[in-house]
Amino acid sequence: SPEVQIAILTEQINNLNEHLRVHKKDHHSRRGLLKMVGKRRRLLAYLRNKDVARYREIVEKLG
């Protein structure tokens, strides 16, 4: 489901952010981070168009 995919991506994004705080010059990982953020944004847009209630619920849960 989109909610699960968004939750997994959010966790991976948070982990990668911590990694990049330590390894500032790791541009390869930064590119992966940007791809993940874009994918999460697309999934959220899809969910917002399909079911606003589910969209609001996941945004509330994940912050």
Rank of each mutant, 00 (worst) to 15 (best):
G32E: 15
E11V: 10
V59T: 06
I58R: 00
L33H: 03
A53I: 11
R40D: 01
Y46A: 12
N17D: 05
H19W: 15
I13E: 00
A53K: 14
R48S: 04
A45H: 10
A53W: 05
I58L: 10
K25Y: 13
N17G: 06
D26N: 04
K35Y: 11
R54Y: 04
M36Y: 06
N14G: 05
L34F: 10
V52F: 14
Y46Q: 12
R48E: 05
Q5V: 10
K35P: 01
N49Q: 12
E60R: 11
E60D: 08
R42H: 07
L44M: 05
S1I: 06
K39F: 08
N17T: 13
V37M: 13
A45K: 10
L44T: 00
S29A: 15
E11Q: 12
K25H: 14
N49R: 12
K35A: 14
L33Y: 08
L62E: 01
Q12C: 12
L44Q: 00
R40S: 02
I8T: 08
D51Q: 02
G63E: 11
R40P: 01
I6R: 00
S1F: 15
R56E: 11
G32C: 15
R40Y: 05
G63N: 13
L47W: 02
I8D: 06
E18R: 08
L47P: 00
N15L: 13
A7R: 08
I6S: 00
G38D: 14
G63Y: 14
L16N: 01
A45R: 08
A7M: 15
G38V: 14
N49F: 11
N14K: 12
K25N: 15
R48W: 10
L33W: 05
S29H: 11
Q5M: 11
E3S: 04
S1K: 08
V4Q: 12
E3P: 03
K50R: 10
K39P: 00
R42P: 00
S29N: 05
V22C: 13
V22M: 08
T10N: 05
R21W: 04
R40K: 03
R30C: 13
E18P: 01
L34I: 10
D26Q: 03
Q5A: 07
T10S: 06
I13R: 00
E11S: 08
V59N: 02
M36R: 06
A7S: 06
N14P: 01
L34D: 05
P2G: 03
E11W: 09
N49G: 08
A7C: 15
K61A: 11
T10A: 02
V22Q: 11
A45M: 11
Y55V: 02
R42G: 05
I6W: 03
I8Y: 14
E60W: 06
Y46F: 09
H28W: 08
K24V: 11
R41K: 09
L20P: 01
N17K: 15
K61E: 07
K24R: 10
I6H: 01
R56Q: 13
G38Q: 13
A7D: 05
Y55D: 01
G63W: 15
N49T: 12
L47A: 00
I8A: 09
Y46G: 06
G38A: 14
H27F: 14
G38C: 14
K24A: 10
Q12T: 05
E60A: 13
L44I: 04
D26G: 04
V59R: 03
E11C: 13
L62Q: 03
L47N: 00
Q5R: 05
N15E: 12
I58S: 04
R31I: 11
R31M: 12
Q12Y: 11
R48P: 00
V4N: 12
R21L: 07
E3A: 06
T10W: 04
V22A: 10
A45D: 10
I8N: 06
A53Y: 08
L62K: 02
K25W: 15
M36Q: 02
E11A: 09
R56I: 13
V22Y: 10
H28Y: 07
R40V: 14
I8G: 03
N15D: 08
T10R: 01
V4W: 10
P2E: 13
E57Y: 05
L16M: 09
L20A: 02
K35C: 10
N15S: 12
Q5F: 06
K39N: 05
Q12E: 06
R41Y: 10
V52G: 09
R31E: 11
L44C: 06
S29G: 12
L62M: 09
K35T: 08
N17S: 14
Q12H: 12
H23V: 03
V59E: 02
E18M: 08
V37F: 06
V59Y: 04
E60H: 12
L44E: 00
V37G: 01
D51W: 03
L34W: 13
D51L: 03
L33F: 04
G63I: 15
R31L: 13
R41F: 09
A53D: 12
K25S: 13
G63T: 12
L20V: 04
L62Y: 06
Y55N: 02
E18N: 10
L62C: 08
R31G: 07
L43F: 03
I58Q: 03
Q5Y: 14
I6M: 02
Y46V: 11
I58T: 04
A53S: 10
L16Y: 05
K50Q: 14
R21I: 05
H27L: 10
L44Y: 02
V4E: 13
H23S: 05
H23F: 07
S1P: 09
G38F: 12
E57D: 08
I13P: 00
V22I: 12
Q5W: 10
